[in-house]
Design a binder for these strands. Sequence first.
DNA 1: CAAGCCATAAACCTA
DNA 2: TTATGGCTTG
Length: 736
Amino acid sequence: MSIYDTLNSQQQEAVFRTEGPVLILAGAGSGKTRVLTHRIAYLIEEKGVNPWNIMAITFTNKAAEEMRDRVDKLVGFGAESVWVSTFHSSCVRILRRYIDRLGYSNNFTIYDTDDQKTLMKDICKRLNIDTKVYKERAIMSAVSSAKDELISPEAYELSTMGDFGKKKIALAYKEYQKQLKKNNALDFDDLIVKTVELFQACPDVLESYQERFRYLMVDEYQDTNTAQFKFVSLLASKYQNLCVVGDDDQSIYKFRGANIGNILGYEKVFPNAKVIKLEQNYRSTQNILNSANEVIRNNLGRKSKTLWTDNEEGALLHFRQFMNGFEEAEYITGDISQKVREGECSYKDCAILYRTNAQSRLFEEKFLMSNIPYKMVGGVNFYARKEIKDLLAYLKTVDNARDDIAVRRIINVPKRGIGLTTITRVQDYADANGISFYDALRTADEIPSLGRGAAKIRPFVTFIQSLRSKAEYLSVTELLDDIIEETGYVADLKAEDTDEANARIENIDELITKVVTYEEGTDTPSLGEFLEEVALIADIDTVDSNSDRVLMMTLHSAKGLEFPYVYMAGMEDGIFPSYMTIVADDPTEIEEERRLCYVGITRAMKDLTLTCAQQRMIRGETQYNKVSRFIREIPRELVDMGQSFQERKVKDIPLPSGFQQMRQAFKSQAFQPRQFEVKKSEGLSYGVGDTVKHIKFGVGIVENIAEGGKDYEVTVNFDKAGVKKMFASFAKLKKI
DNA sequence: CAAGCCATAAACCTA
DNA sequence: TTATGGCTTG
């Protein structure tokens, strides 16, 4: 009995076919990670391949770690020499070694989205591009897509062909790359692009990596872009042992340049490719799987496959519609805490998935209120917080003073009386003399236009210089402590003594912890390596599967994960699918949303709840959305329609049958007054003279109720807030 | 010349 | 509802 006997025959085929190009079409939950890990084990143990010659590329660091763990368990020795990492960290490792061949220096900095934006803003100013007409964001995304497609600034310029707007972008693109190089910095896209450039410019480097990585495996292949594809195909072009695993139905990163053609056209690029389909699902119940199949069936342009499972039929899916987002959140949190209380599951078995991060706030509030432990993935990235970025900018400045963005970020943090005017003058001087911003600062005394300003700059330069010499012998932890101490960063926050300032201090403490953890866990810790690790960290990477908390995240972040109980919230047209894709001319955009829905449904192992709200506050405005079209695509016999929260609270109203309610939900236009009429008659549980409670204004007495069109207008005299008029359906008054 | 205040615009998903 | 930029004031 070998470890391979536990695989089904398709999985075995995928494992045993080690030579030549292989495309594994792996449906959701079909055990692809298992296949990949077993394949690595097979290569090492049965084929005698040196682990050193194997490379596996995953989507996130978390997935890489997980894969390494599993390979470790499967293979007795040598597993640690297998190169398992993400595209980005693989490329960084290669570039750290060879990027000098492209004229950068090897200690380059990595710019995150914020840094990119700062730089782009700068460039627009410099090139006199009116950011009212051409938004930095739009320019950036144009540049980014160009890079994803491996279009150089020069090639982009040629393609503009008299298009005035594109010409501006071409100009900005060119200047942007020039500045990056001057700052000795790369953005995320560059990490891939420059590696490809390196391979193309230096055949000897390419050759050495081709020899090293004789067996290549790429996970989540459907989300690779053109540049990434070029990267792997260059590496694989010598030995052709490229095994890619993906699912075209789970391609959800088109907006980021993912080229679904990479998977649909794989056989064209590698004509002798062996295609293997994994269609047996080991994760979900039949009901969940059938729903997913029915939804995704509505997409054209996909490789046909139908997932099936031996698992039991399982519970029906649940669908619940609520009056508003508050009730939706209340229901989901209540449902989770009930399940936990009754011992059905623990918190970590549950996940709430939503389309946009903004939807998380209501859940967060409810979780806090009901004392439920939770962890939110995404939102404002820890490393994007101001205080963290400030401190990191100090570290970056010490590490690479050519990084103008970092230097300019901290030159006046804390306040040193160096303002925009001074900075501009220094920048002009630097540009005129072809030196970096920091070098200009060092010679501030020689800049005539500065005048008195030069005196303010001097202490800053001295400070940085002393940090740099200390960096020679101090650990990263000590260096960071020194920076915090000398700048008085934490001391200033303490003096502020607001909740916000305290939260910032906590974040800084966390950063210190992270530095300490890093230094303890590495044999040869270095400042540069720490900064690099920080730059490439994704939110999902920090999720600890051991702690017992409810997870909440966007549908995108949920890819690759699974949970026994899944709640998909905000299932409304306009939210999911998003408004943008509904009004778009391009029908494939809806298809991408549908794939996202498919990803969401297939995260669930046992139980899936779909919820939506009739009205929802979006950026301070109330919107009325109809039930998501994706709900309609799920056969109703697979769904339990339940009773809405509203109706459960008002017991004396006879409940409509689930079927009727569903029909109504499906029929409902964006907003039907008739529906409101129903709510109106059943809604008010209070009358004139009753004491009521309002969520914000507190306790008050109802003075008047007036019929106003589709709603009641209630006048309440609040103890604290005074007399207020409000609409009954919005105010959510409770009789006490 | 810098710092604070007010008006205004903009909002998806991300390594 | 929040972030950004312009404007005013010290």
